[in-house]
Design a protein around this nucleic acid. Structure first.
Lengths: 241, 241
DNA sequence: TAAATATAGTTGTCTATACCAATAATCCAT
DNA sequence: ATGGATTATTGGTATAGACAACTATATTTA
């Protein structure tokens, strides 16, 4: 269960082990976990190391603890599934639709002031602009413009973009995309959007602007997407603070 | 700064101290914190205790750490209070605007099929319909229609609605609103919305439909809101799963 | 000059130990 | 039975020290 000679940290091994027990249903909501000292004795590891594993799971809302009583499995961890940072392809897949993409433009442009500020780079600095029409069931769904600092991500090619940019970043470059914010507003399609999305003039659209960051907190990309309002709804889960 | 004889835990004292430095601007985004060992030496406390304080702040997104390099203040502090289940009033307050409200309609209606299904009650069952114009700085911002099962929440009055419905539910009835989902879409204002929101015909609007549940998972209310697109943007935080 | 190497400093992992604080169960006197 | 004290168990706080992994900088070497 626990491999002390592994390069994988012990606390992490224990963490994943307990997580699996919960997700597989072997530990049910409300169940009590063995005490820290039991884990410590059983696996021959320090109690502080056990604590690190358990506290991480408490932070992720898998467990909760009561002083003097014990550690228990949370009632419902089945929260925010649609909350995550998903790609268009994943999003469509979750909706049961076939995703497609047409590359409209791929070039390096100088960042205008607002973009530079958002990307946290100097004004006029080089930025990839990737403009794509996103298709669902072969019909236009959204116009997507991605902006990435060319200094941060050198050597980007059309080919990489046409496969999966995210996969390339995470697997080849070994950078981790961590979190972001998303701004949502309703608007009316402009001329470019009318043409590319194949919708009537003055059609309503939903504009979403996403900022993604890397683990080290550097801004990685700005994505501005214009969705056809007649085809797209967006669902989020709300959590009580 | 640190009072070792205090019953307040040392790590917590240090945590609050650092938090204050950030919130008062003495530590600015991107600034490096003193290293763990510096804190440890300076205050005569163990490095592990310092770690506990710092790791808590990392968890709360005040700080981030880079192995081998140091601990730094996050770029964007916690401005994202918009994630929770907030009322219109709270939402506007967070945006620095004065919130107002005009009651347009308050009656009990029979639930049509879709509404009944959403509320999880029988078709034609009695439902409060509360229709309000929401004002920001005395100008219409949204048209809000709230639907609540009359059997679940008996004896609702206009007066209660005009104060705070949420407060009434939580404090007087002692029910706890726990979580919900929100559906967002863009559209064009219909005639009623054009009139009540005082916007031109064919104006774009953002429609948000919220479902709120009680702690015991019963659906408590459906709120369908139509926001003026020219006045309202919506921001959410995305988290990696 | 450029590349490789050493170094100092940082966070990350882990151990072993000690005592405190809250809870739960038991026992006992009333 | 009820209430109170006792005890065992649990998580919470805190220490001191060791080594690993990583980063940035300085130094040496080619």
């Amino acid at each position: 269960m626990i491999d002390k000679s592994s390069p994988i940290p012990i606390y992490y091994q224990l963490e994943e082990y307990i997580k699996k027990l919960i997700e597989s249903g072997q530990l049910k909501p409300g169940d009590a976990l063995p005490s820290e000292r039991e884990y410590s004795d059983k696996y021959g590891i320090s109690r502080m190391t056990v604590r690190q594993a358990i506290l991480n799971l408490v932070n992720d809302r898998y467990l909760y603890r009561v002083k003097g009583s014990g550690t228990f499995v949370m009632e419902q961890k089945l929260e925010q599934k649609l909350q995550g940072l998903t790609s268009f392809t994943e999003d469509m897949k979750a909706r049961g639709m076939k995703a497609g993409s047409t590359l409209v433009n791929f070039e390096i442009i100088p960042a205008h002031r607002k973009l530079a500020s958002l990307l946290n780079i100097p004004e006029h600095g080089p930025v990839y602009e990737i403009k794509r029409i996103r298709l669902a069931e072969d019909i236009p769904m959204a116009l997507e413009r991605t902006y990435i600092s060319a200094n941060l991500l050198q050597g980007l090619t059309e080919k990489i973009v046409e496969n999966s940019l995210y996969k390339y970043i995470e697997e080849t470059l070994n950078m981790k995309i961590d979190s972001g914010t998303q701004l949502i507003e309703a608007s009316v399609a402009n001329k470019e959007e009318v043409n590319l999305l194949e919708i009537p003039e003055l059609s309503p659209v939903m504009i979403m602007q996403r900022t993604s960051k890397l683990e080290d907190n550097r801004v990685f990309e700005i994505v501005k997407s214009t969705y056809r309002a007649d085809r797209y709804k967006f669902m989020i889960d709300l959590k009580r603070l």
